[in-house]
Amino acid sequence: MISILQIILRLTLWLLVAPLLPGIINKVKAWVAGRQGPPVLQLYYDLARLWKKSVVLSTLASPAFIAGPAVAWVAVVGAAMLVPLGPAGGGLSFKGDVLLLVYLLAVARFCTAWAALETGSAFEGMGAAREVSYAVLTEAALITAILALSVQTGTVVLDSMLSLSSGPGAVLLAAGLFAVLLAENCRVPFDDPNTHLELTMIHEVMVLDHSGPPLAAVLHGASVKLLLFAVLLCEAVLPLGRLTPFAATAALVASVAVVTVSVGLVESLLARFAFRRVPLLLTTAFLLCLFALLLAWKGGAP
């Protein structure tokens, strides 16, 4: 009974906190540019508005066009439930849950790309192609980072993998995972979430034909994914397991806020890279994680 209540509480926390992050990022961007910017809670208003709207369907689209965003949302939220929250631990912790996390994220991506292809629009096919071709490199980096953590701690359970720091490779892992965070969430310098030119968009162009509740699911899923990667990055680098529960919670919240603000700063200070330079950056991120793995392997346990 207690565990069900705990899971519901955790789910509510993830669902309610996630849309805050894009709001903070937009506020930071507005602040750097000297504007007032949209309110921090803007995404909540948007989601509420979208939920009331009706859905416009293409005559070409099969039911997968609606099912895609729904399945992707469920997969991302399921992945979020696996991630431990500091001292509270994981909601559903079991041996090998880290593999499930990676696969749930992959399922979410597959469903988004599938729904994009269902529209039959050339632009959306292009966006889907870009999304999955970048994913080849980001997934490799993410899996290498997880391997490094696993070698460092000697377990395959997220809960115990993330409670200690990642040892000598911590700095490399932080840099690599931050690049993965930016690429996975389609942020500058990999993609520009604000652009309105279909030729240069990636994630935004895939969801161009969605409307109403499915679009709300896509937007909310994207914010949950951003929060998920931010939490993962902070827990992978900081030794939260060594702090008292209260200090660990405070450190987690503060570091997630720092990551969010730095995403906003990166977005204000950098321009989006040309497409041919993106693989170079992603390869660098992958190799940084690979070096962290090497260091974890050779540098010994803390």
Binding site: P168, L287, G300
Partner: peptide, 24 residues
């Protein structure tokens, strides 16, 4: 001591990569 040492050498290894990858 070894922990800090390895961390710094690790940073240096990462910087090697950045030097190879930067185009400016």
């Amino acid at each position: 001591m070894n922990q800090t040492l390895n961390l710094l050498v690790g940073v240096a290894m990462g910087l090697n990569l950045l030097a190879l990858g930067s185009s400016r």
